[in-house]
Design a protein around this nucleic acid. Structure first.
Lengths: 192, 192
DNA sequence: TATTTACATGAACAATTGTTCATGTAAATA
DNA sequence: TATTTACATGAACAATTGTTCATGTAAATA
C-alpha cells in the first residue's frame, strides 16, 4: 500500500528524468541523485536499468492495444472507428504524455528479445489500423490511396502530439486538439 | 582527390552503421571493426565522435534550409509554396534517407552548444513554414486552424518518410509518394 | 633521390558504466 | 517483545568507453 505509492513516486520521477536526459544518457547515478539517495538503493526499486525501460514501454503499449481492441469490437462504420481510434490515441497521449514520449523516442533502446516482442506488437496495432482503413476504402468512405501509407501518415501525425503536451507553456485543450487533428486527417488543410 | 573519395566512403559506411545501431550504441571500436582497421586509425578521419554526428546533422539540415529559402524567394501563392516545400522535402528525403533518419532520430545526442544551435535553426525553418501557412489562411486558401498545429502535423507526416525509403523491400517511386502525401496533407483521407 | 603525406598499428590512459555485496536501521508485523 | 520488512549506505567490481601517443610504411610529391 504505502509500498506501492512510494514505488509509484519513484517510477514517475525517474520517467521524467529519462524523458529529460534520454534513456542511454541517464545513468543509475543520475537516478539516485535525482531521488536523493545512493546508487545501490536504486536496486531496491528495480531489477535493472533495462527492466525499467521495459516496464514503461510495455505498460503504455498495452494501453494502446486495449483501446484499439475495444474499438474493433464495436459495430461502427470504418469512418466512425477511425475517428474513435484517433480520439482514443489523443486521450492516452494527453493523459500520459511522458509515457508516450518514451514510447516514441526510446523504444530502440530495448534489447532482444524484448525489442522483437515490442516491434511485433506494434506491427499488430498497425495491421488492425490498416484493416479499418482497407474496409473504409472498400465501402467508399476513404480515398483509395496506399493503405500502408495512409496508416503511417495518420500515425505520424498522432505521434507528434506528446511534444505539444509537454513542451508548450499553454495549457492544452484535448477536445480542441481532437477537433483539429480529425480535421487535418480527414479533410486536410485546403479550404474547399 | 583520392583523399576525399576515401573519406567519403568512410562517412557513408559509418553513417549506415550509426543508423543501424544508434549513435550512442555505436562505439569507436564498432566503427573501426566495420572498416577493418584499428580504433586509433578512426582519428585519422575524424576529430571526435561528437564532431562526426555534428557533421552529418548540420550537413543535411543545411540542405533543408537552402530548399525552403529558395522557395520563399519565389512569387508563388502560399498554396503553391507549400506544395513546393513538400515536394522538396520528399526529394531530399528520398535522395538522402540515411541522413534524414539521423536528423530525425539522433539530434538529441548533440551536446551544447551545438544542440542549442541545431534547435534554433530548426525553429527558423518551422517559422518560415508557419509564415507560408499563415499567409495561406489570410488569403483564404487554407482552413483557419491553429497555425502551429498545422505546421507540426505536416512536418510529422513528412518526417515519417525516411522509414519508407529505408525499411521497405519494394522500390519506391518518389513521384507517386509525392502525389499521395500532397493528397493527404491538402485534402485528407475522406472521399468527399 | 629525399621528403612529405595519408593511412595504419598497438599499447595505454583515465573516466564512466551497471551491478553486487555486506551491513545498517526504523517501522510494521507477529 | 521478537522478528520480519522496506528502505538505506559505502565500498568495490569488471567491463566498456573515447581518446592519445609513439611508431611504422607505402605512396605521392619535391
Amino acid at each position: 500500500m504505502k509500498n506501492s505509492t512510494k514505488k509509484e513516486r519513484f517510477l514517475l520521477v525517474v520517467l521524467k528524468l529519462i524523458h529529460r536526459k534520454g534513456f542511454k544518457a541517464t545513468t543509475m547515478r543520475d537516478i539516485a541523485h535525482e531521488l536523493n539517495f545512493e546508487v545501490a538503493n536504486v536496486y531496491n526499486y528495480i531489477d535493472s536499468k533495462q527492466s525499467l525501460l521495459e516496464g514503461y514501454l510495455f505498460d503504455i503499449q498495452d494501453e494502446f492495444h486495449k483501446a484499439i481492441d475495444t474499438i474493433l469490437a464495436t459495430p461502427h462504420s470504418p469512418n466512425e472507428k477511425l475517428r474513435l481510434l484517433v480520439a482514443s490515441y489523443i486521450g492516452i497521449t494527453t493523459r500520459r504524455p511522458y509515457h508516450q514520449a518514451l514510447l516514441v523516442n526510446e523504444w530502440r533502446n530495448l534489447k532482444e528479445p524484448q525489442l522483437q516482442e515490442f516491434v511485433s506488437r506494434r506491427k499488430d496495432y498497425e495491421n488492425k489500423m490498416r484493416g479499418i482503413i482497407a474496409e473504409g476504402i472498400e465501402e467508399d468512405q476513404f480515398r483509395a490511396n496506399d493503405v500502408e501509407m495512409m496508416a503511417q501518415t495518420i500515425l505520424a501525425t498522432l505521434r507528434w502530439l506528446h511534444n505539444k503536451c509537454l513542451d508548450s507553456e499553454t495549457i492544452i485543450n484535448p477536445l480542441e486538439i481532437e477537433k483539429q487533428l480529425l480535421d487535418f486527417i480527414f479533410t486536410g488543410i485546403s479550404k474547399k
